[in-house]
Design a protein around this nucleic acid. Sequence first.
DNA 1: ACCTTCTTGTTAAAAAACGTTAAATCGCGA
DNA 2: TCGCGATTTAACGTTTTTTAACAAGAAGGT
Lengths: 226, 226
Amino acid sequence: MKVLLAEDDQNLGMILNDYLTAKGYETILCRDGEEALATFKKTDKLAICILDVMMPKMDGFELAEEIRQLDSEVPMIFLTAKSMKEDTIAGLKLGADDYITKPFSMEELLLRIQAILRRSQPSEPKRSQYTFGKFTYDYEKRLLQYDSQEVKLTSKEAELLKVFAQHINQTVDRTKALKLVWGDDSYFNARSMDVYIAKLRKYLKPDENVQILTVHGQGFKLVDLS
Amino acid sequence: MKVLLAEDDQNLGMILNDYLTAKGYETILCRDGEEALATFKKTDKLAICILDVMMPKMDGFELAEEIRQLDSEVPMIFLTAKSMKEDTIAGLKLGADDYITKPFSMEELLLRIQAILRRSQPSEPKRSQYTFGKFTYDYEKRLLQYDSQEVKLTSKEAELLKVFAQHINQTVDRTKALKLVWGDDSYFNARSMDVYIAKLRKYLKPDENVQILTVHGQGFKLVDLS
DNA sequence: ACCTTCTTGTTAAAAAACGTTAAATCGCGA
DNA sequence: TCGCGATTTAACGTTTTTTAACAAGAAGGT
């Protein structure tokens, strides 16, 4: 179980790191917000993020916002210096699942982590195989199958389809998809994505119950109506 | 899913409000017992009430009693200042479903809300198909059908029609519709909505028994007279 | 009833977003 | 380096949404 730990205080960082490691978590400790964001982008299957609010370069709130853009599911816990009401409000608006004020005991933090993970567990496990309509899509193999037909996808096609498959029947924001697949959302990447949307639609044509709908001004939605 | 929130502490009120809103609930925050009771009376389909015990004008217990008079079903959770045994006992007598002592984590409250809602409502499957008059409307497919005709709706058209379809024969406030479809209710969005109302009316013309009536100064109402 | 003010209806034009196709460029293995 | 598939850029077409302007309707005061 991977835990992202963003804490600039060397001392507290080490303590948390050691404690959570001892409890069986695989922790990744980052010393500032930017480092944490970079780590988040390149780390798969993070179970939870524990973010200090006060950090150099990028504070916990900015960090949380960026992370939410990339992943609307991953739970986050804030570490706040005092019981600052504004802090907790700001944090909760960003979709934090909990917050804990310093000083706190390790047990307390652990309990909250466990409580949150217990709940977020039943949310579908990260697969690499998806089905929608009459299709089977294997992300690892980059293979989209229908009846006995199969199409080999390129890496961008595969990444993009994975994003939609993971959010089936939910609209995925353009910027979110762009950040997940292209890393950032520039104008040209956006146009590039439009081209790829067209490609995916072509692949999905054989089953009319599966469609990529566009939500104008917002994003796209892979719907399965079968 | 509507949640009535009765909490006089401005700060905690906002935190709860924001958190639950972020989690997808439609919260209505009231600052005292009387306001909460008034709100309860005029609000339809409340899923659950979260009541602070200590409040001005009317405390949580009185409020609970009044609410029970009006609705013997609606679940209630009490927020108590301390782990006061008498409080919890008194509350439970009034038909409370749960109580939680301050301070508590958001996570904890959410879990309890979910637990109660899970058992009080076998989670009705969310429809995406509606019928009114001779029409069939499928929100997911964005398809409005009449006889053998069918119209493909744009995303805004689809969203707006869904809002009306979900409140058939009830008037929907302008601001409510605006917030649901456009995200906020600015002047320009309001004018935009008027344009869309016209579009929907055009689509609905084939069946004169189905109409979008305007409730001047308030909103619109989709009526089905057949 | 008449006037005023505010709200809503209607239509057209402007602007923004998205779709499609093809050409240009990139990157990598032969 | 060449070739080739993958990806990006460009150009142009289409659709959706917003904005504007004006007409019509409703509400309230005199």
